[in-house]
């Protein structure tokens, strides 16, 4: 079937079985390899993307389900001219990315939180990131980075 949706602000149209995982379509058909597969069962959050502004695990979404929707991946966080967002900058400055494999998903989960709450508490940050596993940082620097972006 043909599935049409908006990816990082750009309309895309793909031919695919509607039951394929959004994750696979992003990585294999659309070359968006910033979205990672860590477990394939919605436990690690490495494949997190935003659909209409809500964070989801793209391994749990059938691509047919994004027809007509807005999908944002890590590649869409920077400005069109490539300038990194404040949150991305903060991740670098605070050492929130170590091996980097959880970073794209972590950024998207944090991005949603900052859109919703301009002054989140540390506990709110932890809750917002609880679906994204990280094994390198102990989460400390990630939480610091997110808190540094509050207005």
């Amino acid at each position: 079937m043909t599935v049409r949706f908006t990816l990082n602000g750009v309309p895309v149209s793909i031919e695919s079985s509607g039951s394929r995982r959004l994750l696979d379509v992003l990585r294999e058909d659309l070359g968006k390899t910033g979205t990672k597969e860590g477990c394939g069962e919605g436990e690690c959050g490495a494949c997190s993307v935003l659909i209409d502004g809500e964070v989801v695990d793209s391994c749990l979404v059938a691509v047919g389900q994004v027809e007509g929707r807005n999908v944002l991946t890590v590649e869409g966080l920077a400005a069109p001219n490539g300038e990194l967002s404040r949150l991305q900058q903060a991740f670098i400055e605070h050492g929130a990315a170590q091996c980097g494999i959880c970073t794209p998903g972590m950024l998207l989960a944090a991005h949603v939180l900052l859109q919703r709450a301009t002054q989140p508490t540390g506990d709110q940050v932890r809750e917002a990131l609880a679906g994204n596993l990280c094994r390198c940082t102990g989460y400390t620097k990630i939480i610091e980075a997110v808190l540094s972006c509050t207005t």
Partner: peptide, 29 residues
């Protein structure tokens, strides 16, 4: 029926849904 996929998509991908369905009905929207 397929809603949010939090269980079904995992099982479909891993091939652990028995008997394996031939179709999914997207009720999410």
């Amino acid at each position: 029926p397929l809603a949010g996929g939090t269980d079904l998509m995992v099982m479909l991908h891993a091939g652990t849904f028995r008997p394996a369905p031939r179709a999914v009905l997207d009720v999410w929207s």
